[in-house]
């Protein structure tokens, strides 16, 4: 590969991605590189299992405090354990994906490898896409694995009956949630390179999503003004729709479900548009400020 020497050529190379390897090869390299790095931190994987188990215990015992151990929402009555757990688990897995993406960018910046990656001919944008694709896939797989012992230990969904149509709708909803968090990670990563505080940004986003989605309680408990604010987060209606599929025979034609799917998809499109819109501006800004020091 022919590496050019002058800063203007490097910039041009970056902007136009000349002489770069294909996106597929780059994606594969990012996946392999990240897997090798993660393998060095085997202990972290074990800690992940224990942490998930402890967090699940917290939700399990809290849910036992609910009077009659039942919660009513959208015309169905569900066991408080299943209700709280369904909400908390969906929010937990999806926000973990966001946290992992942001932590990986913050870690590259701290280690000083971010500049090298951002200046490679592969291009920062394609690196963003590859890195976040990896974190989404890895985050999903590791979260599901972490929850297996939880399902074996706690009687979370005992006696739950779900029809095939509701199950398929639930799967569709989960895919939409993944797409939404993929795009949200892209946008937040964009701001991370500007303010260099990925962990903090994601913590704020995650905190707000946890509160507004009503993972611990039905949304009717919010005052009217907060309920209006809560619905600005597509995760609020997504969690409500997932619960409806699980406990209230919700299917794709149910109002809450299709609104959730449309909100998640529209939200994703809007966020990707914002990412594209802000990407060049932010990139030029960091070059002007000299925070990517090779420029």
């Amino acid at each position: 590969m022919n590496f050019r020497q002058t800063p203007s050529n490097v910039t041009q190379q970056f902007m136009h991605e000349n002489d770069s390897i294909s996106f597929y090869s780059g994606l594969k390299s990012v996946f392999l590189r990240n897997l090798k790095i993660l393998w060095q931190y085997k202990f972290t994987i074990i800690v992940g299992f224990v942490n998930t188990l402890i967090a699940a215990s917290l939700f399990y015992y809290i849910s036992l405090l609910v009077p009659q151990n039942t919660i009513t929402q959208d015309g169905y009555v569900a066991s408080s354990v299943s209700f709280i757990f369904a909400g908390a688990m969906i929010v937990d897995i999806s926000t973990k994906i966001l946290m992992k993406s942001m932590n990986s960018f913050t870690s590259e910046m701290r280690q000083g490898t971010f500049e090298t990656l951002s200046c490679s001919p592969f291009g920062l944008k394609r690196y963003f896409l590859s890195e976040i694709s990896f974190e989404v896939v890895y985050g999903l797989i590791i979260s599901i694995m972490n929850y297996i012992p939880v399902f074996l230990i706690f009687p979370l969904f005992v006696g739950l009956k779900i029809s095939w149509s509701s199950l398929l709708t639930l799967l569709l909803l989960l895919i939409c949630i993944l797409i939404f968090f993929f795009s949200l990670s892209l946008l937040v990563a964009n701001f991370t390179i500007l303010v260099k505080r990925g962990r903090e940004i994601s913590m704020v986003v995650v905190g707000l999503i946890h509160l507004l989605s009503g993972s611990l309680f039905p949304l009717d408990l919010f005052p009217q003004w907060l309920r209006v604010i809560a619905y600005f987060s597509p995760m609020t209606i997504a969690v409500r729709a997932c619960r409806l599929c699980l406990f209230g025979d919700g299917i794709i034609t149910s109002d809450i479900v299709w609104i959730a799917i449309v909100a998640l998809l529209l939200g994703s499109v809007l966020i990707i548009f914002l990412f594209n819109f802000t990407y060049k501006k932010i990139y030029n800004r960091i070059r002007e400020k000299g925070t990517v020091h090779e420029f």
Binding site: L65, V66, P67, I71, H210, L211, G214, L216, F217
Partner: peptide
């Protein structure tokens, strides 16, 4: 945020 979340959870009236 944590305090607020438990405030709304407390509206489910857990009996201590």
């Amino acid at each position: 945020v944590t305090i607020t979340m438990y405030f709304f959870f407390s509206k489910l009236n857990p009996d201590l």
